[in-house]
């Protein structure tokens, strides 16, 4: 939720700074801004996925400490989403 709100704020600041005139009607946000938004949304998704996996992993580790490695890897797997989303920044920027 937090990230989305941040993105919204970013959006608003953009309008305030440049004024509507600076952007063409169809282009309410710059390309870089879009790319940043994409990364932010991907991070949001990854965070949500990690929430469930993380709490399950902690549960498993609490029962059996040898599961620490597996639990850690499983927890950070959704992080790949953010890394893939970063590619967009380089493609655009």
């Amino acid at each position: 939720m937090f990230e989305t709100m941040l993105a919204m704020v970013e959006f608003g600041v953009l309008f305030a700074q440049g004024g509507i005139d600076a952007l063409t009607p169809l282009q309410a946000i710059t390309e870089n801004g879009m790319a940043a938004l994409a990364v932010g949304l991907a991070a949001l998704g990854a965070g949500y996925a990690e929430r469930g996996i993380g709490s399950a992993a902690i549960g498993a580790i609490a029962e059996d400490e040898s599961l620490f490695g597996t639990g850690l890897i499983m927890t950070v797997l959704p992080e790949t989403l953010v890394i893939l989303a970063l590619v967009v920044v380089f493609l655009v920027g």
């Binding site: 709490s55 399950a56 902690i58 549960g59 498993a60 609490a62 029962e63 059996d64």
Partner: peptide, 13 residues
């Protein structure tokens, strides 16, 4: 409810 946590522990037990 924290289903993930409880379920993981319960399944192990």
């Amino acid at each position: 409810s924290n289903y993930e946590y409880v379920t993981a522990r319960v399944k192990k037990r």
